[in-house]
Structures are given as structure tokens and as C-alpha cells.
Design a protein around this nucleic acid. Structure first.
Lengths: 190, 190
DNA sequence: GTCTATAGGTTGATAGAC
DNA sequence: GTCTATCAACCTATAGAC
């Protein structure tokens, strides 16, 4: 399975043949079929293993006094996570059957982008409730925007496009923190 | 070529065989090889055609009096564009050779997420210069965040995940417009 | 330029010994 | 459970007629 995920991430799904997996794992091809029944079973297991981090990415780290530190930690964890998972998600788009299996998996585990949005927007709403963030902003929209920015950065990296032309994570964190800060007038008026 | 792109988007790259393309286009398989030399040539041509919208998506529509209308138009165009292009980008991840070709294509045409970020942030900077948007915000960060949000929405749609759980485009536009508005104090102070 | 026919190679999967 | 040997199907690509 380790060999399968490695091949899937490094070479893509096209070269992920049962032969290559067996060779890379140092076993015979028949062993692969004995354990996973057929290629579809192997891929299903690989997807379940490759997407396991989906559930692990909870709201851990989404707490702390320094909001910029919280955003930085969350953004960095999200991007690390996407670097691992994006290749697997992309591979599932190669075949309609795999696509359906992925959709079922996401539905069954209630996974998807909205999970991160929910978690982050809860944190932002708490910041608003505590008076540390502008209360007139839409927390879910900010959460989606921040997560979307991290996702776009990870995608650009994954496509090996010319890097360094998108704002850095540090700049993204600073900019997001800035727009959350209550307006000076509101602070004076309290 | 139309048949190729249709198969690529609907069934994924795994089932994109020269046989199926020929059958779907109503020609013989040999014709495919006559025109595109080999399967790699066919795929290269399909990528060039499928990614053509990358250049078309300029800053058109990024002007107008009503900022919310501008954002709505830009966001809708971007999501339509992504619905077409994401399947092609995903397919390129199936094979290392295709991946390199895609990276070269993006480099050569200076395409990539940063293009949209540049265009949108120019518009936002103009809004700031005109005093219609908070001048203390990082325009490039806002642009990346808005584009990232649209991208994440398109990705969720593309993965056939349970829809409707992310903020709508309308809500995203309203929320982004809101955080851009100058603070009341700044308006009074002028 | 388009076709039919076919070669050559790769892949998924099975049989059967150990 | 793991191996070797093998098969049947499929896919890319070419040859040659029209």
C-alpha cells in the first residue's frame, strides 16, 4: 500500500499498474490480487488510505491568543494536507468509476471543503463574539476565502507552475488578520 | 478534437483510448494517427484546445460602477471557466509526461492562478485609489482569496461532493464587497 | 485523407505448485 | 500466503489499398 501511494503521487495513475506496484513493493503480482481481489480493490484501498488525513484535519490548532499565529498554523497545516491529498483527488478524476467512489467516500465521511470552512468560521465567529474581529463581516465567507487562497497556492505548487508569483502564506495571514481588525472608530466609540 | 475533449471531460483520461475517440468521432482509428501522429500528439492537441480559455480569461468585465456587479460577473465567469478547465488540469496529473507538458504550456503562456490575481488586484487597487475601498488592505491578498473561494466552489462541484454547503457566489460577493467598504470614520474624516 | 486488417506490446487476472 | 507461468483482452501503431 505504501508503494501504491508512492507511485500514485509520484507518477500518476496512468503508470499505476499492478505489475509496477508489485515490483515496487518487492512482491509478486499475484500477491496484489490475493490481497485486493482486483485492480479496483487496490485503488479503493489506496484512496481510503490516501484520503485518511481528511478526517484527521479537524479544528486542532484553531485556538490560541495570537490570531496571526492561529491562522499561520491552520494555513500551513492545510497546505501540507493538500500537498498530500490533491494528487489523490486528481487521480480519481481519471475514471468515472473512481470518481463515483470518491464522491461516495466524501459523502459517507462528510468530508469536503465545507469541513474546513465550518471549523475556521467557528473560530472566526468566536473572535467576533469576543470583540476581537469586526462583527459585520460574514465569517463563513472569510473562512472560505482563506481556505480557497491556501488551496489555490497548493494547486499552483502541485501543477509545477512558475512559483512565487502568488502572495506568500505569511502575507495572506497578515492581510486576512488586517481585514478582521475592528475599525478604529468602533474602538473609540466603545 | 471535439470528441476528444468531450470524452476527456465526461469519462476521464483513463477511457480516452484512440479507439474510443475514433468511434465517438465517427472516423476510423487510423485517421486519428494520421492527423495527430500518436496518442501523445492527440493529447497535446487536446490540452492546447482545452486550455485555450486560459488566455481568453482576461480582465474583461473587470470594470463598471457597481462593484458588487463587477465581482459577481468576474466570479461567475471564473467559475464557468474552471468548470471547463479543471477536468483537463486533473487529467494532466495522470501521467508525468503530460504533467511536464502542462507545466511547460503554463509557463510559455504565462498562465496560472496569478493571472487572475493580477487582474483582479489591479481593479481592487483602482477602487482603493478612488477612495471606494479601504486603502489599508492588501489588494493582492483579497484578490487571491476571492479567486480561491471561487476555485474551491468549482472544485467541490467537480468532485460531485454534496453541494450547497459552501456559501453561494452571491453571498461571497456580498461578503467581499462588505469588507472592502471604507470604515464610517474614514468617510466622516475626509 | 480515409479506410480495413493486422502486428506487437502491455495489462489485468487466473491456475496451480509450494 | 507467496510464488512462477500463462492466458485473454485491450491498446497503440503501422501497412497498404482506395
Amino acid at each position: 500500500m505504501a508503494a501504491t501511494l508512492r507511485l500514485l503521487r509520484e507518477r500518476g495513475i496512468a503508470q499505476l499498474t499492478t505489475r509496477e506496484v508489485a515490483r515496487c513493493a518487492g512482491v509478486s503480482e499475484a500477491s496484489v490480487f490475493y490481497h485486493y481481489r482486483d485492480r479496483a480493490g487496490l485503488l479503493a484501498a489506496a484512496f481510503a488510505a490516501g484520503l485518511a488525513p481528511l478526517q484527521a484535519l479537524g479544528e486542532e490548532g484553531l485556538a490560541g491568543d495570537d490570531r496571526r499565529a492561529v491562522l499561520r498554523r491552520f494555513g500551513a497545516a492545510l497546505e501540507r494536507f493538500l500537498d498530500e491529498v490533491l494528487p489523490v483527488l486528481a487521480a480519481a478524476q481519471a475514471d468515472p468509476r473512481l470518481r463515483r467512489e470518491l464522491a461516495d467516500f466524501l459523502r459517507e465521511h462528510r468530508a469536503g471543503p465545507h469541513r474546513g470552512v465550518d471549523a475556521l468560521s467557528r473560530y472566526l465567529a468566536a473572535e467576533q463574539a469576543a470583540g476581537r474581529a469586526r462583527a459585520d463581516l460574514d465569517a463563513r465567507v472569510i473562512a472560505l476565502s482563506f481556505i480557497g487562497a491556501c488551496t489555490t497556492r497548493a494547486m499552483q505548487r502541485h501543477m509545477a507552475a512558475p512559483a512565487g508569483r502568488l502572495p506568500s502564506l505569511e502575507r495572506l495571514v497578515d492581510g486576512t488578520d488586517a481585514l478582521l481588525r475592528p475599525a478604529p472608530s468602533a474602538q473609540r466609540g466603545s
